[in-house]
Simulated assay, not measured.
Amino acid sequence: MNELHLLLILHLLGATIWVGGHILLSVVILPQVWKEKSVDKLFNFESRYEWFGMPALLVMLLTGARMAYLYNVKIDTWFAFETPIERVISFKLSCLIAIALFALSAQFYVLPRLKNNIEKLPLMTFHILSVTVISIVMLILGSFVRYGGI
């Protein structure tokens, strides 16, 4: 097994945890929260998933950066969009920035207000569904590497 294959396995394991957790949140937890009009399950899920999801995200960041270098896409061309592989990496990084912005908004604006105000649930739902869709898009983008990029 070479380095690239090992990195890909670790990257896919991280993606399984990250994307799977967000799909679970979107299709199981979130409907229960809406049905019960109680955000307790949401906060409970977040506190339990965070210790598992964040390390998975870190693994994906580290393995993704290393794989980019192994594909000869250096940091100075990460947003060049010139070659097919550069496009995949650039689009994935753009998605990652969007996820980071949603995460910052959720952590510092939405979640603190949601604890005391159920009326923030639609905004939190938008954040959750957006991150889930973006995460799935990143997964799909990654699959194009096998075919030389997009």
Rank of each mutant, 00 (worst) to 15 (best):
Leu42Cys: 00
Thr132Ser: 13
Ala100Gly: 15
Leu7Phe: 12
Ile136His: 03
Phe52His: 00
Met67Ser: 02
Tyr147Arg: 02
Lys35Pro: 00
Gln107Ile: 01
Glu82Asp: 14
Pro112Asn: 01
Asn44Lys: 09
Ile140Tyr: 01
Ile75Pro: 13
Val137Glu: 00
Leu139Trp: 07
Ser135Trp: 03
Asn116Ala: 02
Asn117Ile: 09
Pro55Asp: 03
Leu6Gly: 04
Ser143Arg: 07
Thr16Asn: 05
Leu104Tyr: 06
Asn116Arg: 09
Gln32Met: 05
Phe108Asp: 02
Thr77Tyr: 12
Ile99Gly: 11
Ile134Val: 15
Glu46Thr: 03
Ser105Gly: 14
Gly21Trp: 01
Arg87Glu: 05
Phe81Gly: 11
Lys74Phe: 15
Lys92His: 10
Phe102His: 04
Ile118Tyr: 11
Glu3Met: 10
Pro122Asp: 08
Tyr109Cys: 00
Lys35His: 14
Leu96Ser: 13
Val59Gln: 00
Asp40Asn: 15
Asp40Ile: 12
Gln32His: 06
Ser130Lys: 07
Leu12Thr: 04
Phe126Tyr: 11
Val27Cys: 01
Leu121Ser: 06
Ile97Tyr: 10
Ile9Thr: 10
Val131Ile: 12
Leu4Thr: 00
Ser47Asn: 09
Phe144Lys: 11
Gly14Arg: 00
Thr77Ala: 14
Met60Trp: 01
Leu93Pro: 11
Leu96Pro: 02
Asn2Ala: 00
Val19Arg: 08
Val28Arg: 12
Ile75Ala: 15
Lys115Asn: 06
Arg87Ile: 14
Leu24Trp: 12
Thr63Gln: 03
His127Arg: 09
Gly20Met: 08
Glu46Trp: 08
Pro55Trp: 07
Ser38Lys: 14
Val110His: 02
Ser94Trp: 09
Met1Leu: 03
Ile17His: 13
Ala103Gln: 09
Met1Asp: 05
Leu12Asn: 07
Arg66Gln: 14
Ile85His: 07
Ile89Trp: 09
Pro112Arg: 04
Met67Ala: 08
Leu8Arg: 11
Ser143Val: 02
Leu10Tyr: 05
Arg87Gln: 15
Glu119Cys: 00
Val145Glu: 02
Ala15Lys: 06
Leu101Glu: 06
Gln32Ala: 13
Lys35Thr: 05
Ile140Ser: 05
Phe43Ala: 05
Ile99Asn: 13
Asp76Phe: 14
Leu57Thr: 11
Ala65Arg: 06
Phe91Cys: 12
His22Trp: 08
Pro55His: 09
Gly20Cys: 07
Pro112Thr: 07
Leu101Trp: 04
Asn72Trp: 10
Val137Ile: 14
Ile140Cys: 07
Leu13His: 12
His22Met: 06
Met67Phe: 08
Asp40Arg: 14
Ser38Val: 02
Thr16Lys: 05
Arg87Met: 15
Ala15Gly: 13
Arg113Pro: 06
Arg66Cys: 05
Val27Lys: 07
Leu114Glu: 00
Lys35Leu: 00
Asn116Asp: 08
Leu114Pro: 04
Val39His: 04
Leu12His: 15
Phe43Asp: 08
Tyr71Lys: 05
Pro112Asp: 09
Lys41Ala: 08
Pro31Leu: 05
Thr16Ser: 15
Val110Gly: 04
Ala80Pro: 11
Val73Arg: 04
Ile85Pro: 02
Ile128His: 01
Val33Pro: 04
Met54Gly: 00
Val137Met: 12
Gln32Ile: 03
Ile99Arg: 04
Ala15Ile: 01
Trp34Asp: 01
Leu123Phe: 10
Ala103Met: 11
